[in-house]
Every structure is written in structure tokens, then in C-alpha cells.
Design a protein around this nucleic acid. Structure first.
Lengths: 350, 350
DNA sequence: GCCCGCTGTGTAATCGATTACATAGACTTT
DNA sequence: AAAGTCTATGTAATCGATTACACAGCGGGC
């Protein structure tokens, strides 16, 4: 009866095209396309025949063809400094959830400290491989030079998460890192600590800059003077924390409290101190930032700053989707942080 | 002199097409395309003119057009049960690295327990949105029914990571969960423990089945009998571990060792026990599985099974790339695990 | 009975790159 | 000098869906 239907037979038939559906349903390709995109503009009978034909041949529209014509990819690029940090996983999850519901897919761009990668992700945007981008990395992608000194030009809508990107005129979802950091510093000072150390994040990280400023604000507000020798470098990794711990142990005069710019370093350093016989918080108080899951289950539980990470992801994705849909949205959203006091901090014992 | 070059002026010019480059370089589009794909087939002069023109107009090839024509997307789908688990982040990183080097992008499919998502990811493959897929979820995607009782048919090459997928005829990168689990159980028994509890993972998880089998193998090998009441349900989350900890505390007769099928639960439960005054390992020994970063820095450090996660990701991606390139590869790779003894386990005190 | 408008459908141009095929010209070979 | 080979290039078909435009057919208003 019918010619083409190689439905069940071979496993290796090429995918069905809109043509095949049209032929089987005895309509034009335009009608098939409309039946899917604007069902109300097609007669019920035609629509039924089309749907039946689609089911029969297992038709799935070809995204490349669709994208080529419509210039829409339904894909979003998420740029982040590294996948290897639990801090991002919950944010990613919030993003994924929200994008999925809107029918968007998520492409991951893990920068991993490589400028080469950055160039490629920028060209992803320039090439129209994605409809939009979420930046978790604290600086603009696509500002990289293209070899002739010009920044990549891209019209791809972007939203910055986690931190304001200086000089960038794009919507930003931020938490007030600086204020939270100040609050933590003041809290430690209020416990009587005078020698409050600080463990830094990567030097090129915007979050770090804000948090560091907050630390200095806090010292000042508490009437303490800034002491360069109480500042340790770090890179947000557990290992960096361990290294700082060892460095602190080697000091003659130790700080009485250590504020680490993220939880992982705080945990690493706390562990090192405790292993060496230092009591936390009796001898040294420790505090972190982020409130990752593990912060609550280390011993002693870590005092830290809670960030609404999942909400951050959801909000960022929502704002980007609004942008893509042409619905303008507040260009700047600020989410609340919360000081979480746990067992790792206590009164200073002079 | 030249007509079109709106290079510097407006920010909102549409992206340059291959046509524009061709016109500017005074060659055909075929030559431009060849200059990029097969430089050796183009005269040096033409090539130079093309490159100059490309730089001048900031040309980036349109991926949709390219994909439509070549049927290659240079994208890989990575399907995983949840982003919200540190266990996967290092694997993802290994994957990303390897794919990036080969010029492939990575699309994340976070299943998150939703069958709806699974259907969409399957249709991603059916539609040719990706060239291949890496499955970290322990079962086939695309076996979902399409509503008419037929599994999605897809020719997309897939590689299973983490665990063998029963009945699936695809390359698999596995670690020997069962043997490792047995070894851990025997190790605990060798310390004199007779009541060795086990905390399970999600019921539908293939890894869990293997690990559970290994636990029973280990009991048997040690001459211990399996006791249903020493098995607790779990879902690989910290919270589940906390719940199990509370449940153990409520028991009159407690196990002397607890083997948790992943580290996060082990850490959650250890913390709960310690908070309640139980000494680890003096009163109860605790062991985990995976060797996540935090395992080494909790107090006491966690005895566990080390898995080469990054290598797992790299290997999986490499095998998939081989498949995509038509280079056949060993259909099954087995990676080594390692028993890591730390402070959380010790001799039984009867 | 004529014209208008509305609905449903088809025809064909279009999106941008790749590549099979054709061809022009230079260079060899006999 | 004729024929053959090789290189560099251009022409145009092609991938598969979307959609502007055209038009057929029908019903209603006058």
C-alpha cells in the first residue's frame, strides 16, 4: 500500500524528515510545520493526520535546520571558573532546573584557568551557538582579543551571577559579599578577637575582591588596624587551606581567629590546626564563607556565611530567559546572605 | 573603494557570513570554506587573502549551517543522576577536559529523578542534537517509551561510565565496585568486627547493586552471616547519613562497624554519632566509598575506597571520541580502585 | 449575482556552509 | 605539438525546517 514506511525493519534508517511526514499525511511540509508550531491554524483533520504520521515515522524536528532558519538555538552557555568546586554545583542545579522548564538546554564552559578556553567560549557566542550566557566567573567572556586587538563583538544576552562585573553593562545577580564579609569580621571582633587573619581567594576573582574589602571594612568598623602579615593567599581549594594551616602553625605569634574567604579552605585549615593539637575554637576560631553542605558536618561545625545558591541559579536563569523573551527585567537583583554561627567560633582567650 | 565593510560602526550588525568573506577576498565561497578546512588545497596567496578578510570582518562559521550540512554537531551529551553530588564533579571535569581538547562541547543532562527529563534527553539524541552521549546514570536513556510503546530509536554512539548497564551493548568504563566493596567488608571483618552494618544507595542504582553484592560477598568470605537488620536504606545524600546515624543511636544493640555505600552518607552519619558522644573508631568504625575530597579532612579522616574519578571521565570521553572518529576501541575498560585506610576505622572492642 | 473577507493550504525562497563536479590553465611526456 | 596530468578555483546542489506570499473555496452582505 504505502511506499516509504521502513519503520520497524532496519535499525539504521536515517531519521525521518518533515518531507516524510508530509507525504504520509498527504499534506505539504508547511502544514506539518504549522501543525507543530501553530496547531490552531490547521484544520483538526489535517492536524490529526499529521500527528498520526509523526508518531508513525518517529519524526523529531532537526534542531540544526530549525536553528539555521530561526536563529534560535534554545541553548544557554554557562561559564564557570571550575567544575571542581562544590560551591557551583547547587547553583548549576538551580540554573538547569529553570532552563529545562523553559525548554532550554545547558552547555557547560569550564574555564579552568585557561585563556584558550575562554576564547573558544567567546566564539561560541559569536557564532550564535547559544542564545544567551550565564557568567559565574566574575569577568566578561568575549572581551578577549581576537588577535587584531578588537574584543569579540557579540550580541548574545548575558547575565552575570555571583558578583558584579566591573564596567559591564549587563544584568547582574549579586549577593552582598562585601557586607557579609564585613559582618563576619565584626562578629569575630565582637567575640574579643584582635588578631583576625584572612585567607584570600584567587587574585583575579571579583568575589574575592569584595570579600577582602568587607574584611577590611569590618576591621575598621571594629576599630582594629589592618595587618598585612595576617593575610594569607589562597585559591579556594581544600589544599590551599591545608597549606595556610601549616603556615599558621609555623608562626610564633598566631592569630586568634581566621576568616577564610570560602568554606573549603576553612575546612582544610581547620583540619590541619586540629591535627596539630590546636583546639578550635578555644585556641583559634575559624570561619568560612558559602555554607556548603559539608560546613555543617565537619567537627566542629563551621561558622560561615550562607548564600542562597540554588535560588541564585534560578534567579539568574529566569532573568536571562526574560531577556531572551524580550521581557525587560530588573537589571540588578540582590539576594540576601545570612551569618551562620556554629561551633568553630568562640570567645577569644587572651 | 569597497562597499560593505561596516566593521567598526554599529554594534548591531548581523554576523558576517562566508559570502561576505568571499566577496572581500575576491574568491568564491568554496575557496573560503576550503581555506579553513583544507588549507593545503588552496594557493598561499588566496589563503592569505581569505585569512585577512576573515580577520577583517570577524567571521566565525555558523555552527547550525555547518551541522545541517555535515550532520556533525561536535557536541556530547552527558547524562547524570544529579549535579548535586561532589562525586560527579571530578568526573565531569575529566570529561570536559578531554572533550574540549578534541574540539567538542558538553551539554549537561541532569536527570534529577524526573522521567520527563529523560524523555527530552532521549529526543536530544534522536534529533541529532549531539554526536554522542556519556551515561553516568547507570541505565540507558532512550529506552524510555515514546508514548506508542516503542523505545526511541537512536543511532547515537553512547558510552556508559561508572557502572555496567545490564543488557546494554555499548562500551562501558567500570570500576570494580563489587570487588572493592567486598574488600572493604573483609577489611572491617579482619579488624574483629562481627556486626558490620551497611548503608544502601538508591534502590534503582546499578552501582548500589554491585556494592551491596560486594558487601554480602565480603560477609560470606569472612564467615559472617548476613543480617537484614544491619542494612539501612539511603540515597547518597549527607542528610540520609544523618538519618541513619540517628537510627543507629536509637538501637539497643548497635553495629560495631558501619560501611556506607558512599562517602557523603558516611560523613553525615559519623558526625551524628560523634555529636551523640559515640567515639569513632573506638566505639564504632565507619567506612565510606568514593574517596571524595572531604573524606580526608573530616575528623576522624574517613576510611574509604578510592576511585580514579578524573581518569574515569577522561577515559570515558576518550572512548567515545574514538567511537565518533570511527576508531574502534576496547568495548570495556576496567579501572582500579584502592582501599584507603584512615582514622575512622579501627579494631573492634567487644 | 457580485464582491469581499476569511480560512486552510500549498509553493518556493530562505537560513549559511560544504562539497561533488566541472573547468581553466600550467606543466609533462612522448 | 598533441595528449595527458595536476592544481586551483568556481558553480550550484544540498542539508531540513520555517514562513512570506499566493490562492482556492466558501459563506455572508448588499
Amino acid at each position: 500500500m504505502d511506499d516509504g514506511g521502513p519503520a520497524e525493519g532496519k535499525a539504521l534508517t536515517r531519521a525521518a524528515r518533515i518531507q516524510d511526514v508530509a507525504r504520509l499525511a498527504e499534506v505539504s511540509t508547511a502544514t506539518v510545520s504549522r501543525a507543530l508550531a501553530h496547531p490552531e491554524r490547521v484544520s483538526p483533520e489535517a492536524r490529526a493526520r499529521v500527528m498520526e504520521a509523526i508518531a508513525q515515522v518517529g519524526y523529531v524536528p532537526n534542531p540544526a535546520a530549525r536553528t539555521l532558519r530561526s536563529q534560535k538555538t534554545r541553548m544557554v552557555l554557562v561559564v564557570l571558573p571550575t567544575l571542581d568546586n562544590v560551591f557551583f554545583s547547587k547553583i548549576l542545579r538551580g540554573i538547569e532546573e529553570t532552563l529545562f522548564e523553559a525548554g532550554y538546554g545547558m552547555i557547560i564552559g569550564d574555564l579552568d584557568g585557561s585563556p584558550e578556553k575562554e576564547v573558544r567560549f567567546a566564539s561560541f557566542m559569536a557564532a550564535g551557538q547559544v542564545d544567551g550566557a550565564l557568567l559565574l566567573n566574575g569577568h566578561l567572556v568575549g572581551q578577549s582579543r581576537d588577535g587584531r586587538g578588537q574584543p569579540f563583538k557579540t550580541n548574545v544576552p548575558m547575565v552575570a551571577l555571583c558578583e558584579a562585573i566591573p564596567g559591564a553593562d549587563i544584568p547582574q545577580i549579586v549577593v552582598d559579599n562585601r557586607a557579609a564579609s564585613q559582618r563576619m569580621t565584626e562578629y569575630l571582633a565582637s567575640l574579643g578577637h584582635r588578631r583576625i587573619a584572612y585567607v584570600r581567594g584567587p587574585a583575579d576573582n571579583v568575589l574575592e575582591h569584595e570579600r577582602f574589602k568587607g574584611y577590611r571594612d569590618g576591621l575598621q568598623a571594629a576599630g582594629l588596624s589592618f595587618d598585612e602579615t595576617l593575610v594569607w593567599p589562597g585559591d579556594y581549594s581544600l589544599d590551599a587551606g591545608v597549606a595556610v594551616g601549616e603556615s599558621i602553625l609555623a608562626r610564633e605569634v598566631r592569630p586568634s581567629a581566621v576568616f577564610s574567604s570560602n568554606d573549603e579552605m576553612a575546612i582544610g585549615l581547620m583540619r590541619t590546626l586540629i591535627s596539630a593539637g590546636v583546639r578550635v575554637p578555644e585556641d583559634i576560631s575559624v570561619a568560612g564563607f558559602d555554607d556548603i553542605e559539608f560546613a555543617a558536618v565537619v567537627e566542629p561545625p563551621l561558622t560561615t556565611v550562607h548564600q542562597p545558591r540554588r535560588e541564585l541559579g534560578q534567579t539568574g536563569a529566569t532573568v536571562l530567559l526574560d531577556l531572551l523573551a524580550g521581557r525587560a527585567k530588573a537589571p540588578r537583583v540582590r539576594l540576601k546572605t545570612e551569618l551562620v554561627v556554629r561551633g568553630s567560633s568562640g570567645p577569644a582567650h587572651p
